[in-house]
């Protein structure tokens, strides 16, 4: 009963004035929707960030996994929650791609984006004993034998591959696997010849030398794999990768967005979080709300060109 009364009061307060409500924010637990399953990379980043920001915010953040439709279910669920700052969502690159494929009704515009968390490029990987030593070897082979080079794709469609194919006018035989956990063994076992994943997904095989990196698809080299040249260095103008960030439903008051943004800035600067990301070979890329929103708009346009 007490709870009912409390909720009624909070609701009434919300209706009367959003800003007065924001004053004592946060006054209860915050939920963080993770649109992918417990145990995956997005889940781990979400849980670690939640853990690092709880002392800063003075309230705990509980992670809620809501999976389905390659992230569409969880992100749509998050976008349609009450805009009171108590439900946040981990948004991933799928928010830019799925709506354009007709697989999701909500778009990035249904969120107020708070902070980008990480931005990771794709790395082109082949077995250690592969005849390919540079990206140009691969492109040359694909040009002389169109549709013959077997590519282990982590998802269907695969935007990393499509970006490369489009810029070089080549075609690979993309075999669709379910994520890097299937694609990497397929290349290790020589069932397919090449794959593209983020550095964190293949860090174990890169360190042990089971896989060889032909190039990284970022604008600059990545600190975790300093010896791997970018595609730009090899004369190919392809930059692609994936990203994650935190968003709130679009009507969330700006004061709350700002407060949360500052809290996440601090959380991402904690030794604990930095350590977690460094060990997982993920690059923290703490874009502020506006830059993040612009970035997503840009990426949406880019993906639109590949999709259509």
């Amino acid at each position: 009963m007490k709870r009912l009364l409390k909720t009624a009061l909070i609701t009434a307060g919300l209706i009367m004035s959003a800003s007065s409500f924001a004053a004592d924010y946060p006054s209860k637990n915050i939920r963080l929707i993770v649109p992918f399953g417990a145990g995956g990379g997005t889940d781990a980043v979400g849980r670690t960030l939640a853990n690092s920001s709880k002392d800063i915010l003075g309230t705990s953040i509980s992670v809620m996994n809501r999976t389905g439709g390659a992230g569409a279910v969880g992100m749509s669920f998050g976008a349609n929650q009450r805009a009171d700052g108590y439900t946040l969502t981990v948004v991933t690159r799928e928010i830019a791609s799925l709506p354009q494929m007709g697989l999701m009704q909500n778009t990035a515009d249904d969120f107020k984006l708070i902070r980008m968390v990480n931005l990771d490029p794709a790395v082109i990987l082949v077995p250690a004993d592969s005849p390919f030593n540079t990206v140009n070897d691969l492109v040359a082979e694909a040009k002389s034998n169109p549709g013959k080079v077997k590519f282990a794709s982590t998802a269907a469609p695969n935007f990393y591959l499509m970006a490369l194919e489009k810029s070089q006018s080549i075609k690979l035989n993309a075999v669709p696997y379910n994520g890097s956990a299937e694609a990497i063994p397929s290349v290790l076992g020589h069932h397919t010849q090449v794959t593209m994943v983020t550095p964190g997904e293949a860090i174990a095989q890169l360190r042990s030398g089971q896989l060889k990196a032909l190039g990284v698809m970022s604008s600059e080299r990545i600190s975790y794999i300093p010896d791997v040249p970018t595609l730009k260095e090899q004369g190919l103008d392809v930059v692609t990768g994936t990203w994650r960030g935190i968003g709130a439903p679009k009507d969330t008051p700006d004061e709350i967005i700002e407060l949360l943004g500052k809290a996440f800035d601090q959380a991402m600067a904690t030794a604990e979080f930095k350590d977690f990301m460094a060990k997982g070979a993920m690059t923290i890329h703490p874009l502020k709300a506006q830059e993040f929103t612009d970035f997503v708009k840009e990426d949406t346009k880019l993906l639109g060109k590949l999709i259509n």
Binding site: R3, L4, T7, R31, S62, M64, R82
Partner: peptide, 12 residues
């Protein structure tokens, strides 16, 4: 277990 149980539409 820190698993969220349904809160109900009326209360959340």
């Amino acid at each position: 277990f820190v698993i969220s149980l349904p809160e109900g539409l009326l209360f959340y």
